[in-house]
Amino acid sequence: MKRFLNIILLLALLLAGCAPASTNEPVTLNVFAAASLTDAFAEIGKNFEADNPNVTVTFNFAGSQALRTQIEEGAPADVFASANNKEMDALIAGSHVAKDSPQIFLSNQLVVILPASNPAGIDSLEDLANTGIKIVLAAEEVPVGKYSREALEKMNASFGADFKDKVSANVVSNEDNVKQVVAKVQLGEADAGIVYTSDAVAAPELKIVEIPVELNVIAKYPIAPLVDSANADLAQAFVDYVLSEAGQSVLEKWGFGPKP
């Protein structure tokens, strides 16, 4: 028993010795980011780590709606970057994010992607209504899924009244996040998918069909530090870096539009 107590004491001393924070103490920053940011934020994270050698940036990429739920259920996040305002607003309502802290850091647009071999012979937006083709969208809960349906609504107005119904009949799966849509098209399981322009940039082997501005939807991404972050200063520093010229140029490289 005595030896046991000694060990406990020793451990306690060791822990106490660690406690006073030195500037070089290793810190992990947990960044929860929309799946569409996967490639760009991975690069930004590396740059941020290079500038702050004691910091390790850990990412959790998923659909913004999934990340929002995880944060609400207590997941340890320092920064949240969402693909829409809706999920950010939900976190403000739940006091996880301070009311005035979110900042729009980029804009994004939609594009139709096709497998390189284009098995369904699609070369215009109207072709999405052809019978028998397989379209994969993100689920309606996912920001890009909601934007996709808004864009289809606009196309409906200009291509004819049953366009959206025909396209909806062609939808074979509602995926959980945008990267799953890309994957299903890359594998050739789907004939077409609607994703962000940035996702098409990250998968250059895919064919694309542009969506003209008047039929497109401009997505605006907000970013904010979390109220409960254990490293509030560092979280803010990461947000500032994303908004800085260096951060913006990385985002631009990956096909995102500038912050408005």
Binding site: V136, V171, S173, N174, E175, D176
Partner: peptide
Amino acid sequence: ILFAGNLEGVT
């Protein structure tokens, strides 16, 4: 979810 996808009423 990988092989069959996700569509209400179908998969």
